[in-house]
Every structure is written in structure tokens, then in C-alpha cells.
Design a protein around this nucleic acid. Structure first.
Length: 427
RNA sequence: GGAGGGUUGGCCGAGUGGCUUAAGGCGCACGCUUGGAAAGCGUGUAUAUCUCAAAAGGAUAUCGAGGGUUCGAAUCCCUCACUCUCCGCCA
């Protein structure tokens, strides 16, 4: 969520940003509505404060008069207060309504894309900023797609998952299950040695937490909801609970940078998905992911974004997978992000690129919602910048590992993973 | 699930309707003191919004959250959340 002050003082920048996100001129009028409402809010606040100050003043006088035994005079003043109270009550109700309307409008405004974000409408306009120049895996003509490999070695059972729960909830078996555990441990160990503190958060969150990172209201339809006394949401990513660790806090300068990592299962309804995109491990309702989150000083966030990308890149190198890096265009950029880089690995048997990581800088968009702040060198409170990235999401990594490293007599486990799996071949 | 106690500032903690402008302590910052440090002494120490060109200053709100009673609420009442103790159940 942008702040009204930011919109006010950077109106042209915000307009350009929204245009890049394909807002029509009509839709841009929301910005003027926000400023007008904010003007109303201010004048209402001033009026209300004046009335309340008057009440406070008279109440003091009444107390004094009672002490002096001047009952009638006090009663006179009481009538006056009752009158003012009628006015202030009305002002208060109006002020509340204005704040609510303002908040609802602000929630409809996405983050301003960074200058680097290319304009575009869909993933076809994403910019490849680092292509894969090395050799592609040289697979034989009878190379299998991962959903056949998993069946051949009986390591992932999609049918059984469908029987137990539904499509998109696979059952990992034997070496398949061990591979999951190995990848999780490998990713966590790598994150830890890069200085991230491990967090193990709840995998259900309440509405406030979901709103904090921007999952609500704009991704409501993508989350599974548990309806008990209060609504709980199964997390679509560890980003929700982990970023919210510092919600409402004022962070001390020396605490920067805050680096956290977490492994969690992730749950996504993926409503409306269909076809070959959802085949096998390509798109699941439940999957495992190790997430990295950083909370930084605003001056450092883009530097931090680069470091996080290097971390993700390092993982893919160690897993010996061909990858490329994309800078998302404005049409593909998520609502709350200012700049996002996607990492894709090449799935040799499917002959397509699969997204395995998304690394983003949200600037103050999330911290404003979460009221996550720090004190600058002048003692002023300012919003922090938040960033996150997948490091990494498992299913498509597993798909790529199986397909790229398959041989006639089994699937080879990359060197870096072997101490975690305890085996070097799936056969 | 049942019964009872609690929630006050960064932390501890006092506070039963107006003298609360939230006592006192700890912590933190700055200063004095010191050869240097500690101790000691002094000063300061929340957040948000409005007002103000800005700073200073002023106003309002905030004592778990929301509502209510009252001229006036940290204090009384209601609802909810969290927490502790005991009982029950339990991996």
C-alpha cells in the first residue's frame, strides 16, 4: 500500500507507474480521489480535535467548580458539554467513514514499478537479462518427461495423492521422499551459511497477517481458507508469516540487515489453471519451499536484491541445472512488487523453461501495511524496505533434476546434494 | 472443555472516577566527574494524526482490542483476544 503522502508528493511518478501497469486514464482518477479524501480527512480531524479540546477544558472547569461547591454553575457547563458532544460525535462518525473509504481506495493502487521494469502486457514481454550460454543437457531420443520417470522408479505417486486428497497433492515415496527432505536441508543449510536465521512459522495465518504482505485482498481466491471461529488462511508462501515477524515493530539501525529463512509447505488453489502447464510437478496445490526474506534500510534494498539473486543463482549452479534470469515486465509484475526477477530452469524433456524462483523488492509497499519502521540518523521514523525470494521451490527443481540428469540406468544426483540424500542415483 | 487471576511505556512495576502532566526502578542517550573506566550526580527518553513554509511550539488520540456509562475513565460496565494457575482431556 502506498502512503497518501507519497502519492501527493510524487503524483507524476505514480501516474507513470500505473500507466506502465496498463491503467487507463479513467482508472488513474483514483489518485485524485485519494488526495481529495485525504484533504477531507485532515479538515475533519482539525474540526474534531477542536471540539474535543473544548470538552476537555470544560470538564476540568466542572471538576474545579464541584470542589468549590458551585453546583449550579457546574450544571450549566454540563449542558454546554452535552451540546458539543453531539457535534463531536457526528464529526467522529464522518471521520471514521472517510478513513475507511480512503483505506479502501489505497488498497486498489498497486506498487509503483521500478525504472528498470520493462513495459509489457504478459510474460512474453519479460526481459531475459541473463541467458544460458553453456551447453544444454544432451538427452537421448527416448528421454522421459518427469511424470514418467517418477512412475518408472515409483518415487512420486500422483494417482495415490489424487485418491487421498485430490489432484495436485502428490505422494512422495522412498527415494522421492528422501529427495524432498534432502533438498529442504540443502537449501536451509545454504541459507544459514549466507547469514539467514532459520524460522519455523505456523502454516496458517490470520487475516491481519495475510493483509500485511498483500496476500489479502488481492489474492483471496488463491488461498485455502479454514473457517473456524475466525478465518485462517493456509499460507501460499512462507513470505506471509516470516515477513510479519517484524510487523508493527520499530527496528533499531544496528539490527539491519534482518535476514530470515524458512522452510514451509505452501498451499495454492491455483483456480483456473489447466492443460499441460499443470501436468506432473509443474503446478501443485501443495508444495515445499524454502523462502528467504530480508528487511533493510531503504538505501540498501536494491543492493540487497542483487545479493539475494546471487544466492539463488549459487543454488542452481550447485544443482547443475541450466537456468536463465528474467526481469518481469509491468504486465507480469505482481501487484505489490516494485521489481521482480524470475529464475527459470530448463526442463530438458518437456523442452520448456520452468519458473523456480521469484526474487522481489517491495520497497515500502508491505512495510506500510505492516507498520514496520526504523529510526533514521535524524531520529525520524521511516518505513523499511522488505524483500523476499524463493530459495528454492521444490517441485519444478525436482522435475528438472529428474529430466536433466536422467541416464539409461537411473537419475544421477548432483554432487552437492549427495551428502543430504545419502544416495547418488535413483534407480 | 470447566473455574479463577492477569494484560500499564524498550523492560519491570505503582496506580479503585478530577491533584496522572502515568509514581518509582531498570535500560538507553547525552553531559558532569575521572589518568581511564565503574560508581555517583544531572538532563533527556513512546507512537500516530492534525496545526505550522520549516523548526520550535501547540492540539487530539493511545494504559491488550473494540464498544458503553459519565461533564470527566488506566480506574466502572459489556464483548472479544491473549496470557497465567488449577481441574479435565491429550501426542
Amino acid at each position: 500500500m502506498l502512503t497518501t503522502n507519497f502519492i501527493r508528493s510524487n503524483i507524476e511518478l505514480v501516474k507513470e507507474g500505473l500507466k506502465k501497469r496498463n491503467f487507463s486514464d479513467d482508472n488513474l482518477s483514483v489518485l485524485q480521489q485519494i488526495i481529495d479524501l485525504d484533504d477531507q480527512r485532515k479538515s475533519q480531524q482539525t474540526k474534531l480535535d477542536e471540539q474535543l479540546a473544548e470538552i476537555n477544558k470544560i470538564s476540568g472547569q466542572i471538576g474545579q467548580l464541584y470542589k468549590e461547591g458551585k453546583r449550579e454553575e457546574a450544571d450549566e457547563l454540563k449542558k454546554k458539554v452535552a451540546e458539543i458532544k453531539g457535534i463531536s460525535k457526528g464529526l467522529e462518525d464522518q471521520a471514521k467513514q472517510i478513513k475507511l473509504d480512503l483505506e479502501n481506495l489505497l488498497l486498489t493502487v498497486p506498487n509503483v514499478p521500478n525504472k528498470l521494469v520493462p513495459a509489457g502486457n504478459s510474460d512474453e514481454d519479460n526481459e531475459v537479462i541473463q541467458a544460458w550460454d553453456d551447453e544444454m543437457p544432451n538427452l537421448s531420443a527416448d528421454a522421459l518427461p518427469h511424470w514418467e520417470i517418477t512412475e518408472k522408479y515409483d518415487i512420486i505417486d500422483f494417482k495415490l495423492g489424487a485418491q487421498l486428497t485430490g489432484a495436485g497433492f502428490p505422494v512422495y515415496k522412498g527415494k522421492g521422499a528422501k529427495l524432498q527432505r534432502a533438498l529442504i536441508n540443502f537449501f536451509l543449510a545454504e541459507a544459514e551459511s549466507a547469514g539467514y536465521q532459520e524460522i519455523m512459522p505456523p502454516i496458517m495465518v490470520n487475516a491481519t497477517t495475510a493483509r500485511g504482505t498483500g496476500a489479502l485482498p488481492d489474492k483471496e481466491g488463491q488461498m485455502y481458507v479454514i473457517e473456524e471461529e475466525q478465518k485462517l488462511y493456509l499460507i501460499p508462501t512462507a513470505e506471509l508469516p516470516v515477513t510479519n515477524v517484524y510487523a508493527g515493530k520499530i527496528i533499531k539501525d544496528k539490527e539491519f540487515p534482518i535476514k530470515m529463512t524458512a522452510y514451509t509447505p505452501c498451499f495454492r488453489r491455483e483456480a483456473g489453471s489447466y492443460g499441460s502447464d499443470v501436468k506432473g510437478l509443474n503446478r501443485l496445490h501443495q508444495f515445499d519451499k524454502v523462502e528467504i526474506v530480508q528487511i533493510t534500510h531503504p538505501d540498501k534494498s536494491y543492493e540487497t536484491l542483487d545479493k539475494m539473486m546471487l544466492h539463488v543463482e549459487g543454488l542452481l549452479k550447485k544443482l547443475e541445472l541450466p537456468y536463465r534470469i528474467l526481469r518481469l515486465c509491468s504486465g507480469d509484475l505482481s501487484f505489490h512488487s516494485a521489481l521482480t526477477y524470475d529464475f527459470e530452469v530448463f526442463s530438458a524433456a518437456q523442452k520448456k523453461w520452468l519458473e523456480v524462483s521469484s526474487v522481489s523488492n517491495f520497497e515500502t509497499f508491505q512495510s506500510n501495511r505492516m507498520k514496520m519502521r526504523f529510526k533514521d540518523e535524524n531520529g525520524k521514523t521511516q518505513l523499511v524496505h522488505t524483500l523476499n525470494g524463493s530459495a528454492l521451490a521444490l517441485p519444478r527443481i525436482v522435475a528438472a533434476l529428474l529430466e536433466n540428469h536422467q541416464t539409461a540406468d537411473g537419475v544421477n544426483i548432483p554432487e552437492a546434494l549427495r551428502s543430504y540424500t545419502g544416495f547418488d542415483k535413483i534407480d
